[in-house]
Amino acid sequence: MALRATIYKADLNIADNDRGYYGSHAVTVARHPSETDERLMVRLLAYALWVQADERLVFTKGLSDTDEPDLWNLDLTGAVQQWVEVGLPDDRRLLKACGRADQVLVMAYGRGVDVWWAGVRHKVARANNLQVFALDAEATKALAALAGRNMNLSINITDASAWVSCDQGDVSLDVRVLRDDVRI
Protein backbone atom coordinates (compact mmCIF):
# COMPACT_ATOMS: atom_id res chain seq x y z
CA MET A 1 0.00 0.00 0.00
CA ALA A 2 1.38 3.39 -0.98
CA LEU A 3 1.91 6.03 1.65
CA ARG A 4 -0.29 9.11 1.41
CA ALA A 5 0.71 12.75 1.50
CA THR A 6 0.42 14.59 4.80
CA ILE A 7 -1.57 17.81 4.71
CA TYR A 8 -0.09 20.95 6.28
CA LYS A 9 -1.96 24.21 6.71
CA ALA A 10 -0.16 27.51 7.07
CA ASP A 11 -1.29 31.06 7.61
CA LEU A 12 1.43 33.25 6.15
CA ASN A 13 1.62 36.90 7.15
CA ILE A 14 4.09 38.40 4.68
CA ALA A 15 5.73 41.81 5.01
CA ASP A 16 8.04 42.38 2.04
CA ASN A 17 9.56 45.74 2.91
CA ASP A 18 11.75 45.82 -0.21
CA ARG A 19 8.78 45.67 -2.59
CA GLY A 20 6.10 47.24 -0.42
CA TYR A 21 3.98 44.08 -0.35
CA TYR A 22 1.99 43.19 2.76
CA GLY A 23 -0.42 40.30 2.60
CA SER A 24 -1.88 37.32 4.40
CA HIS A 25 -2.31 33.95 2.74
CA ALA A 26 -3.90 30.77 4.03
CA VAL A 27 -2.26 27.88 2.16
CA THR A 28 -2.66 24.12 2.22
CA VAL A 29 0.39 22.10 1.27
CA ALA A 30 0.61 18.36 0.68
CA ARG A 31 3.86 16.89 1.96
CA HIS A 32 5.00 13.90 -0.07
CA PRO A 33 6.04 10.91 2.10
CA SER A 34 9.66 11.28 0.95
CA GLU A 35 9.76 15.04 1.56
CA THR A 36 11.55 16.42 4.62
CA ASP A 37 10.37 19.20 6.93
CA GLU A 38 13.28 21.26 5.61
CA ARG A 39 12.11 20.99 1.99
CA LEU A 40 8.50 21.74 2.97
CA MET A 41 9.54 24.89 4.81
CA VAL A 42 11.77 26.04 1.94
CA ARG A 43 8.77 25.64 -0.39
CA LEU A 44 6.71 27.84 1.94
CA LEU A 45 9.50 30.42 2.04
CA ALA A 46 9.76 30.42 -1.77
CA TYR A 47 6.02 31.05 -1.94
CA ALA A 48 6.36 33.98 0.47
CA LEU A 49 9.24 35.46 -1.53
CA TRP A 50 7.53 35.34 -4.90
CA VAL A 51 3.77 35.54 -4.30
CA GLN A 52 3.85 39.35 -4.39
CA ALA A 53 4.69 39.24 -8.12
CA ASP A 54 1.36 37.58 -8.85
CA GLU A 55 -1.06 36.04 -6.40
CA ARG A 56 -1.81 33.22 -8.88
CA LEU A 57 1.36 31.47 -7.68
CA VAL A 58 0.26 28.05 -6.37
CA PHE A 59 1.74 24.85 -5.01
CA THR A 60 1.74 21.94 -7.45
CA LYS A 61 1.92 18.20 -6.99
CA GLY A 62 5.68 18.67 -6.55
CA LEU A 63 7.51 15.40 -5.92
CA SER A 64 4.41 13.44 -6.94
CA ASP A 65 4.65 14.68 -10.55
CA THR A 66 8.01 14.98 -12.30
CA ASP A 67 6.55 17.21 -15.03
CA GLU A 68 5.59 19.96 -12.58
CA PRO A 69 7.70 22.28 -10.45
CA ASP A 70 7.18 22.91 -6.74
CA LEU A 71 5.24 26.11 -7.43
CA TRP A 72 3.99 27.76 -10.56
CA ASN A 73 1.96 30.62 -11.90
CA LEU A 74 -0.24 29.92 -14.90
CA ASP A 75 -1.90 32.64 -16.92
CA LEU A 76 -5.54 32.40 -17.96
CA THR A 77 -4.63 30.38 -21.07
CA GLY A 78 -2.67 27.80 -19.06
CA ALA A 79 0.76 29.05 -20.16
CA VAL A 80 3.42 28.93 -17.45
CA GLN A 81 4.52 32.39 -16.37
CA GLN A 82 6.62 31.39 -13.34
CA TRP A 83 8.19 28.01 -12.66
CA VAL A 84 9.70 27.66 -9.17
CA GLU A 85 12.04 24.79 -8.27
CA VAL A 86 13.21 24.03 -4.73
CA GLY A 87 16.38 22.06 -4.12
CA LEU A 88 19.16 21.15 -6.53
CA PRO A 89 17.56 20.33 -9.90
CA ASP A 90 19.68 18.98 -12.73
CA ASP A 91 20.55 21.07 -15.77
CA ARG A 92 18.23 19.16 -18.14
CA ARG A 93 15.25 19.86 -15.90
CA LEU A 94 16.16 23.56 -15.70
CA LEU A 95 16.60 23.91 -19.46
CA LYS A 96 13.28 22.15 -20.07
CA ALA A 97 11.60 24.50 -17.58
CA CYS A 98 13.19 27.53 -19.26
CA GLY A 99 11.64 26.39 -22.53
CA ARG A 100 8.19 26.05 -20.97
CA ALA A 101 8.01 29.13 -18.72
CA ASP A 102 8.51 32.86 -19.02
CA GLN A 103 10.54 32.91 -15.79
CA VAL A 104 12.26 30.10 -13.90
CA LEU A 105 13.27 30.59 -10.27
CA VAL A 106 15.38 28.17 -8.25
CA MET A 107 15.66 28.22 -4.46
CA ALA A 108 18.68 26.01 -3.79
CA TYR A 109 19.42 24.76 -0.29
CA GLY A 110 21.52 22.16 1.47
CA ARG A 111 25.18 21.49 2.05
CA GLY A 112 25.90 20.75 -1.62
CA VAL A 113 24.68 24.04 -3.11
CA ASP A 114 28.09 25.33 -4.18
CA VAL A 115 29.12 21.98 -5.69
CA TRP A 116 25.76 21.71 -7.49
CA TRP A 117 26.02 25.25 -8.85
CA ALA A 118 29.60 24.73 -10.05
CA GLY A 119 28.36 21.68 -11.98
CA VAL A 120 25.32 23.24 -13.67
CA ARG A 121 26.15 26.94 -14.06
CA HIS A 122 27.88 26.59 -17.45
CA LYS A 123 25.29 24.13 -18.74
CA VAL A 124 22.44 26.61 -18.11
CA ALA A 125 24.36 29.71 -19.22
CA ARG A 126 22.23 30.13 -22.36
CA ALA A 127 18.96 30.24 -20.38
CA ASN A 128 18.15 33.94 -20.17
CA ASN A 129 14.98 33.51 -18.08
CA LEU A 130 16.63 31.67 -15.16
CA GLN A 131 17.26 33.12 -11.72
CA VAL A 132 19.02 31.09 -9.02
CA PHE A 133 19.08 31.83 -5.28
CA ALA A 134 20.58 29.92 -2.37
CA LEU A 135 19.91 29.54 1.34
CA ASP A 136 22.41 28.66 4.06
CA ALA A 137 22.22 25.00 5.13
CA GLU A 138 22.23 25.74 8.86
CA ALA A 139 19.46 28.32 8.50
CA THR A 140 17.21 25.91 6.58
CA LYS A 141 17.73 23.25 9.24
CA ALA A 142 16.60 25.79 11.85
CA LEU A 143 13.65 26.66 9.59
CA ALA A 144 12.66 22.97 9.51
CA ALA A 145 12.30 23.03 13.30
CA LEU A 146 9.38 25.46 12.88
CA ALA A 147 7.34 22.96 10.84
CA GLY A 148 3.98 21.85 12.17
CA ARG A 149 0.71 20.54 10.76
CA ASN A 150 -0.95 23.91 11.49
CA MET A 151 1.36 26.90 11.28
CA ASN A 152 0.95 30.63 11.70
CA LEU A 153 4.12 32.14 10.22
CA SER A 154 5.13 35.78 10.08
CA ILE A 155 7.64 36.39 7.30
CA ASN A 156 9.47 39.70 7.10
CA ILE A 157 11.61 40.30 4.00
CA THR A 158 14.20 43.10 4.03
CA ASP A 159 17.54 43.62 2.26
CA ALA A 160 17.89 40.10 0.81
CA SER A 161 17.01 38.50 4.14
CA ALA A 162 13.90 36.73 5.35
CA TRP A 163 12.98 36.54 9.00
CA VAL A 164 10.46 33.78 9.78
CA SER A 165 8.79 33.66 13.18
CA CYS A 166 6.07 31.66 14.91
CA ASP A 167 5.25 30.33 18.37
CA GLN A 168 8.05 27.72 18.10
CA GLY A 169 10.75 30.36 17.51
CA ASP A 170 12.26 32.44 14.76
CA VAL A 171 14.89 32.05 12.05
CA SER A 172 16.80 34.57 9.95
CA LEU A 173 17.75 33.46 6.44
CA ASP A 174 20.00 35.31 3.99
CA VAL A 175 18.98 34.81 0.38
CA ARG A 176 22.14 34.64 -1.71
CA VAL A 177 21.90 35.43 -5.42
CA LEU A 178 23.79 32.89 -7.54
CA ARG A 179 22.53 34.06 -10.90
CA ASP A 180 20.81 37.32 -11.81
CA ASP A 181 21.03 40.97 -10.98
CA VAL A 182 17.62 40.86 -9.36
CA ARG A 183 17.64 41.42 -5.61
CA ILE A 184 15.33 39.54 -3.30
Rank of each mutant, 00 (worst) to 15 (best):
A118G: 09
H122A: 12
T158V: 14
R93F: 06
A46R: 09
E35G: 10
V80G: 01
D181R: 10
Y21P: 00
A147C: 13
E85V: 11
V120A: 00
G148I: 02
A108W: 05
W50V: 03
V106K: 03
P33M: 07
A139F: 03
A101G: 04
D75H: 09
V84P: 03
P33R: 06
T140N: 05
G169L: 07
C166P: 02
Q82M: 09
D70C: 04
N73M: 09
F133D: 02
L40N: 08
V171D: 04
G20H: 06
T140S: 03
G87S: 04
R4Q: 12
C98R: 05
D16I: 01
V171C: 01
S24R: 04
V177G: 00
N13T: 08
E85K: 10
D174L: 03
M107T: 05
G112F: 03
A10G: 04
I14Q: 09
P89G: 02
T158E: 09
R126E: 12
M107R: 07
K9A: 12
D102P: 00
I157Y: 07
L12T: 06
V27R: 02
R126I: 12
R4T: 11
Q82T: 04
A48S: 15
D174W: 02
P33V: 13
E35H: 06
A101W: 02
L105W: 08
F133T: 07
W117F: 15
D18T: 14
N152P: 00
R100H: 06
E138D: 12
I14A: 08
A160T: 12
A108Y: 07
L45Y: 10
V132K: 02
W163D: 15
V177T: 14
G78Q: 07
V42M: 04
R92T: 10
L63V: 03
L95Q: 11
V51D: 11
Q168Y: 10
W117R: 03
Q82L: 05
L94R: 09
W117E: 12
D181G: 13
D170N: 14
V175Q: 01
A10S: 15
W50I: 00
E55K: 14
A142N: 13
G110S: 08
L49V: 08
N73F: 04
T60D: 05
D54R: 11
K61Q: 13
Q81W: 11
R121T: 13
L49W: 07
K9P: 00
T66P: 00
W163I: 15
L57M: 11
T158F: 00
Y22S: 10
A142E: 15
Y109C: 02
